[in-house]
Write a protein that binds this DNA or RNA. Structure first.
Lengths: 371, 371
DNA sequence: GTGAAAGCGCTAACAG
DNA sequence: CTGTTAGCGCTTTCAC
């Protein structure tokens, strides 16, 4: 305010080099703006903007002006205000990332790759933890929109799809990770869960098992449904009847794995093998087994989904179906930026990444069928 | 453009209720703005803004107008543009979160609490993964500033402090988590590492151990230095000479743990106990031990820092020094918002959270001293 | 009770 | 080669 007039009537000529500016400006601790640089250098904000956005040559700005501006900008430690920039350009260089539970190593891995990949594109990510609640997921999506993100990577909670339908047209680019909805035409990346579960089950069958329990996670979510399908397909293929009472559990948690295994041990004493559909379920199963003094794999064999880093270090190194979550994160970012950059209609389908069966020591070869 | 004149000369009176607006407006798919609502309702943007920011009563806006505005806003699915808002208010309701490696469960836990806590304050978080690189950490801090975050929670990489000095005055509120710098007066939250390491070491000593190796992580970082100090203090207290050749390792990784343990086994055959300063180091140690056919705890005892969820499920359930990382995240957010909200000078000191020694089965009682 | 207008910091026509 | 001006969507004096 003090020197408003000075600013307005500033002559662009002969800005005597070390003219003492109003000291409050020189040492002020608020972020410098284009205006301030303009004032201190005697050039217009336009020119500063052009130089600092690398358009100096396009506008044939003199080398001298350019270097002067750059120098001053550096001196003042100028950082462009992305808010203003975003408002003007309608490009915020930001995407949203919605994760049900970042403390789950599976999602943490995805988040890491997504963050890293996003940064490569010069974008930032706003992180939302939906806490496995559809309510919070909806809220997060709204919040992200109000912050003008250009796209979002969403690991949906997974049971309701209504709130996602509106994104189908491509109003806001979105890509689903891990869980998706076959009937909802949004692009997605997931693992080939059918094939993974099938392979795991077949491994057990090939080792002579016929009574194989299936410790499932949250029902009606795509990973769970597909894994159960793979499990059933393997049984059927080998002419083993599917026994629905062997398919138990209802959430992707350690606790569910624990409880269901305890029950199983009581009610189905002939079960000699478990297919666990999630690493947390498996941890719970291990705890239950230990409590009941059953040894793995002598008394009971187990194969689990996911291959957390400690799998090899467990009391019995665990045979697992590994999903490449880092690749999932990477592909998700790729699909998202394809959409953002082309601004064309959404990619139609989804991508299913292959799983890898990692054999360790938790499966025992049965000489004679257990049943 | 088409109906610019209409907009400008819109009379606020008698907006015939269902007057057909230019259809492109009614069904456009771009986010509605105050202007649009104003246009469609025949009230000024000012009024809309006041209603929607809950200042209706303050400005004595008529009940009728208020409800009409609210209704329309809801119909149009209006979401205020936070960019514009932030620009105007100089409040972005956003904080930054810089993590060295989100795939590390320790940091993931902190990130989760920080995200959740932040949301409670109505704020969002921009996540940056510094990949354990000071370079990236500096870059992230700049990026966050350019996005006008109101504060940042930083888990510093930890070896250089120069780039942090500028935050001391409180230009941008910041709180350090896990690693900090005693000589740098920035608020921080960490664990009481000295005491934790000391307790763990004393547990070994009380069980008859005297030759205790220390598997350390990244040197010159505060957690490492303090843990080593705790280790030494315990030894000294019990009149056991500190042998520097027993303090080995140089990074918080599985690999470092593995290599150093292998070497240790060769060069220091009399070592019967290991204090591991990080969960990953411990995993590496376990692998080395298994390869060399040493049993835990029969041949060698081990106590580790951090208590990841699988600790109890390892071949030998691990005795650990647990840090409450969820509490760390929570306290960090609290300290940050204290600063943001008070806009007063920074909190001076830091907070050290107590650790908990969790006894499991990886420590053996030596009947006669091993030395 | 309500509006007009200025301005946050930036970019992009449109002049010269 | 450089500057003037308008405007992104919002809030807030100041005015009536």
């Amino acid at each position: 305010m003090i020197n408003k007039k000075d600013i307005d009537s500033a002559t662009s000529t002969t800005s005597t080099t070390s003219q003492p500016h109003s000291s409050s400006l020189a040492s002020t601790n608020t972020q410098p703006t284009l205006k301030r640089i303009a004032h201190e250098s005697g050039v217009s904000v336009t020119t500063i903007s052009r130089v600092l956005t690398g358009q100096a040559s396009r506008y044939r700005i003199s080398k001298k002006t350019e270097t002067a501006v750059r120098k001053l900008a550096k001196e003042l430690d100028f950082v462009p205000n992305q808010l203003a920039r975003g408002l003007r350009l309608k490009k915020t260089l930001t995407i949203g990332l919605v994760i049900p539970d970042i403390s789950n190593p599976f999602f943490a891995g995805i988040a890491q790759q997504a963050t890293l990949g996003t940064r490569k594109h010069g974008y930032s990510v706003i992180l939302c933890d939906s806490q496995d609640s559809t309510e919070l997921e909806i809220q997060s999506l709204g919040l992200l929109q109000s912050r003008n993100v250009e796209g979002v990577v969403l690991c949906p909670v997974g049971q309701s799809t209504d709130h996602l339908a509106e994104y189908v047209g491509g109003r806001l680019p979105i890509v689903l990770v891990d869980r998706f909805y076959p009937e909802l035409p949004l692009p997605y990346v997931s693992s080939d869960n059918v094939s993974g579960a099938k392979q795991a089950t077949e491994l057990l069958i090939e080792n002579g098992h016929r009574r194989i329990a299936c410790l499932q996670g949250l029902r009606h979510t795509s990973p769970n449904e597909f894994r159960v399908r793979g499990y059933k397909e393997a049984l059927t293929k080998h002419h083993i009847p599917v026994d629905e009472t062997l398919i138990v559990g209802d959430s992707f948690t350690e606790q569910s794995g624990y409880i269901e295994t305890k029950l199983l041990l009581k009610t189905q004493p002939d079960v000699k093998a478990i297919l666990s559909l999630c690493n947390l379920n498996a941890l719970g199963a291990i705890r239950a087994l230990a409590e009941e003094k059953r040894n793995v794999p002598e008394d009971i064999s187990i194969v689990s989904f996911d291959d957390p880093p400690y799998s090899a270090y467990l009391a019995t190194p665990m045979t697992t179906v590994a999903q490449s979550y880092s690749e999932m994160g990477e592909v998700a970012v790729k699909l998202l930026f394809d959409q953002i950059q082309s601004s064309r209609g959404q990619t139609k389908g989804g991508i299913l990444l292959p799983t890898t069966l990692i054999k360790r020591k938790s499966v025992k070869r049965l000489e004679s069928p257990s049943n």
